[in-house]
Design a protein around this nucleic acid. Structure first.
Lengths: 159, 159
DNA sequence: CGCCTATCGTTGTCATATACAACTATCTAT
DNA sequence: ATAGATAGTTGTATATGACAACGATAGGCG
C-alpha cells in the first residue's frame, strides 16, 4: 500500500472535489427545467418546505443569497403557486413564507427523484460504507460552511 | 446504533449533498476574484496545465461547456497572459493551448491554497479515514459523470 | 407624543456566465 | 475539384446574482 500523508491526501481530495464540483454544476445547469422550477427555485422551495414561516431574509441567509435575489426567487415561487407570502401579524414589514399543497407535492417529487438518483451511487456499499460516505460529505459541508462564515475564502481575502 | 437502509441513507445523502453544493456554490461566487481569475477561468487554467496541448474543443468537453463558451474562456486566459494559443502544425483549424510560466505559477498558487484549505478538513482523520473520504468523493464524481453522460438527469428527462 | 434610526422587502440597474445558432476557415474523402 | 465534416469565433438571448436606492414599518428616546 502506498504511504499517504495528510498533504498528499489533501492534494488528492482537491482533485476529486474539483471534479465533483464541475460535474454537479454541469448537471444543475442542465436540470433547469424540472417540474417548471429552476435549480435555485428548487433550493428555495426546499428551504420553505423544511422551515415554514420562513422570512425572505431568512431564506436569503439560508441560501447564501442577497435579499434582493431572494425576493425575486420568492416572487417566482409565489407566481407559480408553490409558496405563499403572508404578512406577519405582529410585524407588517416581514413576510412569512409557506409552501402550498402543490409546492409540497412538487418538493416531495423532486426529493424522491434525487434520492433515487443518489441511491444508485450507494448500491455497491454496505451499511457501514454508506454511513461513512454520508458522514464524510457532512464533514465537508460543515467545514466549508465554517470557513465561509469566518470569511476565510481560500485566497485573496484579507485576513 | 440506528439501523439504516439504503433508502434512508439515500435520503441522508441527498440532504448533506444539497448542503454541500449550496455552500460550494456560494464560496465559488464569492471567490470570483482570485489572482485575477474567475472561477471558470481557474478551472480552465487547471485543465490546460494538467493537459498541455489541449484544444478548445477538448477543453469544452472536459469542463462540460459549449465550445463557444470555451472559446471565450480561452480568450480571457490568453489576454491575461495565463495561456497561449498556437495553431496546430498539421491542422491549422485547431489551436493548441499551453500554460505560460505565469499561468503555471498562478495555477500552483491556487492549487496550494486549495490544498491548504482542504487540508484543514482532514486534520481530524487518520490515514485510513482520509483515504476513504477521497475514495467516497471520487465515487460520487464518477457516478455523477456517468449519469450525466447517459443523459440520465434526475428528472424531466425523456428516457 | 413625535422624531430618528434600524430593519424588511422591493425595484432599478449592471455584470457575468452560459447556451444556441450562424458563420469562416480549413481539412478530408471521393 | 468539390462536397461535407470539423475547429473555432462571433452575435444574440437568457438567467443568475450583486449592489444601491427606496418605501414602509417598527422601536427607542427625547
Amino acid at each position: 500500500m502506498t504511504t499517504t500523508t495528510q498533504q498528499s491526501d489533501a492534494r488528492a481530495l482537491t482533485a476529486v472535489l474539483s471534479d465533483l464540483i464541475r460535474v454537479i454544476q454541469f448537471r444543475d445547469r442542465d436540470r433547469a427545467c424540472c417540474y417548471g422550477l429552476s435549480v435555485s427555485q428548487c433550493y428555495g422551495l426546499a428551504a420553505v418546505v423544511e422551515t415554514p414561516e420562513l422570512t425572505v431574509n431568512d431564506l436569503a441567509a439560508s441560501l447564501f443569497l442577497e435579499k434582493s435575489t431572494a425576493s425575486r426567487l420568492v416572487n417566482g415561487l409565489t407566481e407559480s403557486g408553490f409558496i405563499t407570502k403572508t404578512p406577519d401579524s405582529h410585524d407588517r414589514r416581514t413576510l412569512r413564507l409557506c409552501p402550498t399543497p402543490r409546492g409540497e407535492a412538487v418538493h416531495s417529487a423532486i426529493q424522491g427523484d434525487l434520492e433515487r438518483e443518489y441511491g444508485h451511487l450507494l448500491t455497491e456499499l454496505d451499511a457501514k460504507g454508506r454511513a461513512s460516505l454520508v458522514r464524510a460529505i457532512q464533514r465537508l459541508a460543515t467545514g466549508f460552511a465554517a470557513s465561509v462564515e469566518t470569511g476565510g475564502g481560500s485566497c485573496c481575502v484579507v485576513r
